[in-house]
Design a protein around this nucleic acid. Structure first.
Length: 548
DNA sequence: CGGATTTGACCTGCGC
DNA sequence: GCGCAGGTCAAATCCG
């Protein structure tokens, strides 16, 4: 991914370089011909380094492989060199040696031409070959060779300097980016941290009680399941239904991960690690809301849900339904479904939590999207709620082609990413070159979810609206497909290559693309920081917090 | 009969 | 402290 997403995702290769740490700063030394030397196989492609910075993924990969593992080193022994590891010195030395030694071996070629020129001059003067003339020729030859050698040395020195300069620049840039990243991540965290410390009372908490949505779901899932099981056993053992007081005690002693409200309690109970605590507190409250037109009572998103409650929400005549995921025992994912009060054809689905189980392919794309959105929202690329950054900036980063469809609210009770799929796309947005669909990887069946992305349910890819002019085009990036009436979720991944991509395909592809890169949030943060440093966004004054 | 849904009670956080 | 609103629980009910 990373291509076709404009500035934001162009940072992907940069991300690969800058944020996967260490050996990414590798580059390839080359340019034998450039040096005027015989081309050695291990000195190819001079200045691949800046190319790599510019975003060639292949270059990145090759550069990384050169120093990432010993085995790789054995495969590509000298071809690629890490200038920022010890090898750098070695290679530079090689170049140096090369400049001194190699010309000797190249003399035949160059000298031949030069001698021919020199000799021809003399031969026209004197046809007789005397030993003096031979000596003179030899001296001339030697002098020219020495000049050539000096020139090459100077050239190599220049190249070395250039290389060193580029290396230094890269290092500085790298450090700067890392620093920016850390600052962005730590600043809002510290604020919350301080607040959490002040509010929380020190009580014991087990690590299992801290479920970080930003982490791969496995750990949190296991934790959630463990907690859930233990609490279930406890309830079973108790036999009789607990009284209110007992129930209360039970909740406090075994804070089931399944309860949002209880989670808030866990967050207050936990005090061992302030950072984790504060992060968790925000993480758990992060939500992804999807607005879509649907006549159904609930959109099919590939997951199995069980309704566990319904309430009348204030200010909305339509009841709000509460669902929990039943695809796995103890899955903490919840969702709320409610019709919009203003337009009852709009169904608002709000997801929270991450699945602790594998998702069906149909549910992967949206899960990835919502997870990425939530992760980004909470990872530190999300500014604190004090309005340092326009949420729309982040929304644009999520969906650069649909800024009006994705809004992020940091001031809401829960940080919420809202994907509005009900609006017609801005025509101007379609003037941007649409990313080739092939760059998106729609998850295949059995393909694990992106490791870095907590999984959340998918809502795309189901019949949302019985209308060819599906309003679902809000997220469409490339074109409106008249024949793109959404089919069943299983069909969305079976689009024939020669057919125009369906909306579901496009959406799924886009959503998958968003999260294919484990470092998406980091890349996003970097992009944002660059945007900030480069000036304010044209719409930055339009602080459109989307509160529900 | 087992699983899903309904629905009233209960809990919790927040604002006044 | 009280009331309100959001969220959850669990017994009752429904349904295949």
């Amino acid at each position: 991914m990373g291509k076709g997403w404009g500035l934001t995702l162009d940072s992907d290769p940069v991300t690969s370089n800058f944020f996967t740490n260490k050996s990414n700063s590798t580059t390839t030394v080359a340019g034998g011909s450039f040096l005027g030397l015989k081309q050695h196989h291990h000195h190819r492609d001079m200045f691949q380094f800046p190319v790599s910075l510019a975003g060639s993924r292949d270059n990145d990969r090759r550069g990384t492989s050169a120093s990432s593992s010993p085995s790789d080193d054995t495969k590509i022994p000298i071809d690629e060199v890490d200038f920022f590891s010890d090898k750098k010195v070695r290679v530079v030395d090689d170049v140096k040696k090369e400049s001194i030694e190699a010309p000797a071996s190249d003399l035949d070629v160059n000298t031949g031409l030069l001698l021919l020129t020199a000799g021809s001059d003399q031969s026209t003067v004197d046809d007789g070959v005397s030993s003096d003339m031979e000596d003179k020729r030899a001296k001339n030859e030697l002098a020219q060779l020495q000049d050539e050698l000096k020139r090459m040395n100077a050239e190599n020195q220049k190249l070395k300097d250039m290389l060193s300069h580029v290396s230094n620049n890269y290092s500085a840039l790298h450090m700067h980016l890392v620093t920016l990243m850390q600052q962005q991540q730590q600043q809002p965290q510290r604020n919350r941290e301080t607040q959490a410390i002040q509010e929380s009372k020190p009580e014991e908490v087990t690590p299992l009680q801290i479920l970080d949505l930003s982490r791969p779901s496995a750990a949190g899932a296991e934790a959630a399941e463990t907690i859930s099981h233990s609490s279930s056993e406890e309830r079973t053992r108790s036999g009789t239904p607990p009284s209110n007081v007992e129930k209360r005690v039970n909740r406090e002693e075994s804070p089931e991960s399944e309860s949002w409200g209880q989670n808030c309690k866990v967050q207050k109970l936990s005090s061992g690690k302030p950072v984790d605590q504060s992060t968790e507190a925000t993480m758990r409250k992060a939500r992804v809301s999807v607005r879509a037109r649907s006549e159904a009572t609930m959109i099919t998103d590939g997951c199995q849900w069980r309704k566990y409650g319904q309430k009348m929400a204030k200010g909305n005549p339509c009841p709000r339904a509460y669902y929990r995921c039943t695809m796995a025992v103890g899955c903490p994912v919840r969702k709320q479904v409610q019709r919009c009060a203003d337009d009852r054809t709009i169904l608002i689905t709000t997801y929270e939590g991450n699945h602790n189980h594998p998702l069906p392919p149909a549910a992967m794309a949206m899960a990835s999207t919502t997870a990425a959105a939530a992760s980004m929202l909470l990872s530190g690329s999300m500014p604190s709620a004090d309005g340092i950054m326009n949420p729309n900036l982040l929304a644009r980063a999520i969906l650069p082609c649909s800024s009006s469809m994705a809004t992020i609210s940091a001031s809401a009770p829960f940080p919420t990413v809202t994907l509005d799929l009900t609006h017609s796309p801005n025509p101007l947005q379609f003037q941007r070159p649409a990313p080739p669909l092939t760059q998106f990887q729609v998850p295949f069946p059995g393909q694990p979810a992106p490791v870095s992305a907590p999984q959340l349910p998918q809502v795309f890819g189901q019949p949302l609206y019985n209308n060819n002019q599906s309003k679902f085009s809000g997220l469409q990036l490339s074109q409106e497909t008249g024949s793109s009436q959404l089919g069943h979720q299983q069909q969305q991944h079976q689009a024939l290559p020669q057919q125009p991509p369906t909306l579901a395909d496009t959406v799924s592809a886009a959503t998958a693309a968003i999260t294919n890169d484990p470092n998406f949030t980091a890349a996003l943060a970097a992009a944002i920081s660059s945007i900030i440093s480069g000036g304010t966004h044209p719409n930055s004054s339009n602080n459109n917090n989307n509160r529900q």
